[in-house]
Simulated scan of single mutants.
Amino acid sequence: MSGLSERERVGFTKILGLMTTADLLSLSDTVTNKMIVVENTREATETILSFTKNAEELLRRKKVQRELIFRYLAKEGVVMPPNSEKHQLVKRTLEFWSSAKVVVDKSHQGDENRRRQPTETASDSTDMKAGPGFDPLVLGQQFCQWFFQLMNSQNPSLGQQPQDWGPQHFWPDVKLRLLSRTGSEQMEDFLGAELVSLRLLALSREERLLFSPNLEPYGLKALASPHGLVLVAVAGTIHRDEACLGIFEQIFGLIRSPLENNSWKIKFVNLKIKGQEALGGTEVTAPALSYNSSELQLLCS
């Protein structure tokens, strides 16, 4: 009877798990028109999923509150502006489930594999094979979804299990340049997988920053050099709890590692952060990249 996909069922199970018992039982009564009596939260959850015709219908239910959807997306690494309205959160959730389903169809791999080795999944996918059909933008989208979900999972404010962060995702001689404009301008440079990994980790774990990338065309660019380097540039917003602190622009240099199943590893990272005071009240809900293709080409040479 249920019209939900497997991905939607998994997502709803997590959302319903955030609800109070009273609201969950009430929602079960609403969905079934009180035709089925449930005795516990497990039965209520299964009943709701079984009698739901489509995902949007359930997301728009009054008991599925805006805050629940916001928390769910944040835990999945999809950070939305804190002032997002419910209809915006519903739309983004449906897009997230739909895009995740496409990745499953392409990779033919299980969810667990994809969570543990996302860079390997990207390199094993048909679209990721180097050659005439290789599209660096597809790689860029998949990489950003993986990287920022991984990074945001380290933030203790989300209350979720941190994913497998560490120097293993970087080349040993990786370089990080961090430029922050939050009142005063500060430049930091780091060399080596351990130091770069720890500095980026501190942004999420100690400073509790949440990074929300803009994966629309004007927020994401990717290009490949003839020598195997793929450049991924992305813009987005930075949050802490309910506050939007500013915007970021981040450039990644990616190179395959032939000794590790040809998975993509990070060769360099340039990260620019601008605080609200440096933006002068500019709208930052979906920032665009300031880099043009010519500037990115120079980094590939």
Rank of each mutant, 00 (worst) to 15 (best):
S2F: 03
G3L: 10
E6H: 10
E6D: 13
E8G: 05
F12Y: 01
K14P: 01
G17W: 11
L24S: 05
L27S: 00
V31G: 03
T32K: 08
K34W: 12
N40I: 02
I48W: 05
K53Y: 13
V64I: 15
I69G: 00
I69P: 00
R71N: 12
K75R: 15
M80R: 12
P81S: 05
P82V: 08
P82D: 05
K91R: 10
R92P: 03
R92H: 09
T93M: 13
E95A: 10
F96V: 02
S99Q: 15
K101T: 15
V102K: 14
R114W: 09
R116D: 13
Q117F: 14
Q117M: 12
P118C: 09
T119K: 13
M128T: 01
G133V: 10
F134A: 08
V138Y: 12
L139K: 01
G140R: 07
F148N: 04
L150T: 03
S157T: 13
P162M: 10
D164N: 15
P172I: 04
D173H: 15
Q186W: 04
M187Q: 08
D189I: 00
L191Y: 10
V196F: 00
R199K: 12
R208Y: 12
L210R: 01
L210M: 03
P217G: 05
Y218T: 14
L220E: 01
A222N: 06
L223T: 04
A224Q: 13
P226R: 06
L229T: 14
L229H: 06
V232Q: 04
A233R: 01
V234S: 05
G236F: 06
T237C: 11
H239F: 10
C244F: 02
F248P: 06
L259I: 13
E260H: 11
E260L: 14
V269A: 02
L271T: 08
G280C: 09
G281M: 01
T285F: 08
S290L: 07
S290W: 06
N292G: 09
S294V: 11
E295I: 00
E295W: 01
L296K: 05
